[in-house]
């Protein structure tokens, strides 16, 4: 149970990084930490003690129920893969924006990048 709470602690660390740090690159790192905490949580959901990989091999194919009882849950792994792909896309867009912002403002400091007031 403790690992689930540790994931949430990591999530909070990411949010802290996002709020407290003034550098755009560190903010990006904060977002990435949040994403990884979520992915880690998803992986832990499918975990089973002494489980095997959910891939059917030729030796296993005659005894499907035993295989199903032994293997870990494959669905969260598929979800994690999808969310990693999405995270990659977000990260690339963030980095590209950061480079473009640096080109315009000549700084990564968010206190100086503030021509808009939300």
């Amino acid at each position: 149970m403790i690992v689930y709470y540790l994931c949430l602690v990591m999530f909070m660390l990411g949010i802290y990084c996002l709020i407290a740090k003034k550098n755009i690159v560190r903010k990006i790192i904060g977002i990435v930490i949040i994403e990884y905490a979520t992915n880690l949580f998803l992986v832990f959901i499918g975990y089973k003690h002494n489980g095997i990989a959910p891939i059917i091999t030729p030796e296993m194919q005659d005894n499907i129920p035993a295989f199903a009882a032994q293997s870990v849950d494959p669905l969260p792994q598929a979800l994690v893969l999808t969310s990693i792909v999405i995270g990659l896309g977000t990260l690339c867009l963030m980095v590209a924006l950061a480079i473009r912002l640096n080109e315009k403002y000549r700084t990564f400091d968010t206190t100086e990048i503030s021509s808009l007031k939300g």
Binding site: C92, V95, A96, I99, R100, N102, E103, R106
Partner: peptide, 20 residues
């Protein structure tokens, strides 16, 4: 393509900083 694109952009920015 993303890698090449980012490296081209990064080069522009780095050269701009040197100029500054």
């Amino acid at each position: 393509a993303i890698f090449v694109g980012l490296s081209i952009f990064g080069r522009i920015v780095a050269e701009g900083e040197k100029g500054d």
